[in-house]
Amino acid sequence: MARMKFLCDAERCIECQACVTACKNEHEVPWGVNRRRVIVMNDGQPGERAVSVACMHCTDAPCAAVCPVDCFYTTADGIVLHDKDLCIGCGYCFYACPFGAPQYPEQTAFGVRGKMDKCTFCAGGPEPAHSQEELTKYGTNRVEEGKLPLCAEMCATKALIAGDGDVISDIYRKRVMQRGGRPQTWGWQSAYGEGV
């Protein structure tokens, strides 16, 4: 079974924010809620690099582990989703998430005021696909149409890639081979050491 994944190639990310606005465009996420954002390291200094971050759809998702009302579920292809009707907006998942993915609307509510909102991998939520309810609470459902998250599809340099983990690792591996070096994803060095 395929597992849906995001991967951001820091050698290609140019901090252009297309992923952020593509998400706003697709799901009409309100002002102040960012399902995706671009994180810059060493801003303005030699070695400056950026990665685009959203919910990483963890296999053993910490958000789900700590949720007091167990509003999370995972699709068969590995997309972590949640039910806004169950969510109590407590914010516990925000503390558990290693990526800061959960968002909480302040004024104009997305769905219901104060409920947690996060990246759905453009796969909607627990409402009938393409229903007005799904659209209002979770946004569009591209995955059901055979399309991938718009942030990745619109990435300016194809830095952010999404899809079946096997396919995207294949695409990425080819790129790395072309560059003639080791993978340059962030964290690689700390995980495997300088020499790898």
Binding site: C16, Q17, A18, C19, V20, T21, A22, K24, N25, L150, E153, M154, C155, A156, T157, K158
Partner: peptide
Amino acid sequence: LGAHCAKGASL
């Protein structure tokens, strides 16, 4: 090839 920047993606 389908790509956009922040402006194009919010067209």
